[in-house]
Design a protein around this nucleic acid. Sequence first.
RNA 1: CGGGACGUGGCUCAGCCUGGUAGAGCACUGGGUUCGGGACUCAGGGGUCGCAGGUUCAAAUCCUGCCGUCCCGACCA
Length: 572
Amino acid sequence: MRLSRYFLPTLREDPAEAEVVSHKLMLRAGMIRRLASGIYSFLPLGLRALRKVENIVREEMNRAGAQEILLPLVQPAELWKETGRWDKFGKELLRFKDRKEHDFCLGPTHEEVITDLVRGEIRSYRQLPLILYQIATKFRDEIRPRFGLMRGREFIMKDAYSFDANEEGLNKSYRLMYETYERIFSRCGLRFTAVLADTGTIGGEESHEFMVLAETGEDVIVSCPSCGYAANLEMAEAVQNFSYPEEEEKTLEKVSTPDVKRVEDVAAFLGVPTWKLVKTLIYLVDNKPYAILIRGDHELNEVKLRRALGAEVVEMADAETVERLTGAPVGFAGPIGLSGIVIIADKAVAGLKNFVTGANEKDAHYINVNSPRDFEIDSFYDLRNVTQGDLCPRCGKPLELTRGIEVGHVFKLGSKYSEAMGATFLDRDGKEKPFVMGCYGIGVSRTLAAAIEQNHDENGIIWPLALAPFHVALLTLGPGDQELFEASEKLYHALWEKGVEVLWDERDERPGVKFKDADLIGLPYRIVLGKKFKSEGKVEIKPRTQKEAFLLSEEETINFLASEIQRACQSK
RNA sequence: CGGGACGUGGCUCAGCCUGGUAGAGCACUGGGUUCGGGACUCAGGGGUCGCAGGUUCAAAUCCUGCCGUCCCGACCA
């Protein structure tokens, strides 16, 4: 492609609308433009990069024996009512009516549609296993879209669904997809890790998330360098047993704490460490009130809470509810004297002596609180977030916390959807059974953003070869120089013939402009025809990852680039 | 949905507090010089200041409402 004819509007300055680096760079490099919040157009360069990801995904899915299909974005409400998700999914599901006043939605995911398709066509265990996938647009009316393609409302996703006759088959399909995902993200040139994950609203039994490691990631990954254990924050078990020093139980005492509410403030005011405070959080768990006790220096994880209680919905009680249940404004809740409310606690609270709690009274706390002497705890669960210094649940060595971007997610669904929708097949024993399903997603557009989050410097993007929209930027300096232009044109065609994708900057621009744009766009190799070519007949080559350039003849340049690209991009 | 910020040529922003002729840089068009890290110069084109009300002799500026965008929290590929 000739840059002078290419629709590539690069920006000198950071656009005001972008905050994170991938978003800024994609806008500046002319890859995307915003149409509405969380909704983006892809420009030629952005689309080329997107297609690179898609093609790797497609090749590896096909290799695994999955078959590509394309399902509708617009879906009738009836299907969603069959599984009960029409009511459960909430506002993320964008709903509307057609001209006949029938309810429809834009597909945020496709379990219903795929299950409907398969139940009509697959009748026998002999047709299993079956894995189908698509690469298509999804729409989720996110509460807060942000960070450009990282959390858009409309986005490109690869979603796959496996159908098996039994658990054993599902385990095999799951394993196959897991391994396929490892191949996909490796081929993309990304540093990633797979972690144990919660199954969330899609539901199911087992689940892993694939996380691209990046400082700017929204998710926290807990991993053990010693044994390889890795989980996200919702799943990582906080197993540490705290052995608190033996202490006499002192006399319970109410103290005045005027206007002191926050944990740090209370601790400072009373002169005790934050871990000797116990927070009392009032939650509505499936609309039943719970008081949850957690150490002052720990954080409650709502997903853990939901899982521990086997609940559907957990939400923090609002200020009025807290006041009604505890008789005190927010900030002074405590377990002593509460009635009509279940009291549970995080495991780390067990064995804690002479701690501090709210007194259910404005401007007052209790000190020297002890359980069960002063109140009873119904039960203990793992409810807190793992923190730096916690120990691995498998091997007991210290855990590490890092950040990541979730780019893929694999689930074992079991028969949740097939049962709800009556999707059955006839098994070998002559009995009707529901399909045992798995579902496997990759955020394709998000993967692109994650790749940039992980690979950039202060000058712009640094594309991994496999994802680069073009492999090479060819800069011709010296405008109007016929010799340089003709040599460039020859080289340009020769490279394309060898399968090297070249973006040729033959614009009538000064060298500085070309260098800046080349760095910004971040193609893996930059080759320059300028002074050195005029004097020595050599082409200057600089990998985007390196500071220094080197010189090669035209022929060497072609061979070098062709072999580099073949090495990095061919499906292994 | 709660909390915060913002909306002025294509882009980044100033002007608003203290009402009175709409500005700068970049980008764009034409001319000249320049050409290995975002050149210089001359001449130009382009904005009903997000929208709608209100206050005022007069509103980008003050007030009210709405819309849009971004950031922080609960959701997720």
